[in-house]
Each structure stands twice: as structure tokens, then as C-alpha cells.
Amino acid sequence: MTFTSLARIALYAVAVGSGAAATAEETSTAAAEQVTIPARCLLQVKGVKYITGTCQFWPTGEGDFVLHGGDYFTYVFMSDEDGPNMAIAHWNADPSSTHAHSPLGKLKRDGACWVSDTVRICAWKLEK
């Protein structure tokens, strides 16, 4: 997997441990300064809806994005290695967690959603 976007760098920095803490903090600060877009969102895992309704959508480049709603967030990374319209996602399965350390696996694009047999991540533009 190639880590090229801010979200990938942040996740990687957290994954490699405390030696990357400064990098994770710098990347996290840079990501927080990016523009967020209110959207209508869905994060559903194994039939349970964790994000539903209005959330914040952060495009992080190269098609990658972050959704944040309530106590949950998810990172979706495009995965050219797995073919067109494929992505890999992670989320903070525990609402008290500050890292998206729980893998959601490979997802395939279906309109405004990224889906697998157990996961559905969607973001729609809010109607005014």
C-alpha cells in the first residue's frame, strides 16, 4: 500500500508507534486545517449505523476522505492496487478512541457509497 495523502500518512504514523508521534501530531494539525464540508452521511458496520445524518466530510486528496459524525470517524483510502473503484477503510470502533485503528477491509464504490458484505460508507451532498 502506498501512503501518499495526509490521511494515509496520519494513519501510518500512528500505526508505527511512538517514534512517529511528532509526525502524527503535525499531520493531524494539517488535516484539521483542511476544509470540511457538511454532508449527509452513513457509516454502517455489520448492520449497525454508527454515523447517520449530517456529518463532516474531509477530502484529503487523490479521492481519499474522512467522515466524522458524533463519536465516530472513518478514513477511506483509494486502492489502485485492488483495481478501479476500490478502497480500503479504517474507523474508530470504540467511541473513546482517537485513532482509526480498526480495519473495515476492502470496499467497492457503489454511487455515493463504498460497500462490502459488512460495511457501507456513504456521503451525499446536503440539499439546501
Rank of each mutant, 00 (worst) to 15 (best):
S96I: 07
A7N: 08
T74I: 04
P59W: 03
G19Y: 13
I88D: 00
A20K: 06
V14D: 14
T52H: 09
S28Y: 11
P95W: 09
K46D: 14
A20F: 11
A13S: 15
Y75F: 13
G61P: 00
P38T: 09
G70E: 04
D64Q: 07
T27N: 01
V76D: 04
R8E: 15
L42F: 00
Y75W: 10
P59L: 03
A93C: 10
M78Q: 12
D94G: 04
C41S: 02
L67A: 04
V48W: 03
D82R: 13
K46S: 13
N85M: 10
A24T: 11
I9R: 13
V66A: 03
V66E: 05
A22E: 14
Y72K: 03
E33N: 15
R40W: 07
E81Q: 10
A87D: 01
L6S: 05
S96T: 15
E81M: 07
E81K: 09
G63D: 04
M86S: 13
H68V: 09
L6E: 00
F73A: 06
D64G: 02
A22T: 15
L42M: 04
V14Y: 12
T36V: 11
E26Y: 13
Y72E: 01
K46T: 11
A24L: 12
K49S: 14
M86E: 11
G47R: 01
G17Q: 12
A39L: 04
S28R: 12
A22P: 14
D80M: 08
I9D: 06
T74C: 03
T52C: 02
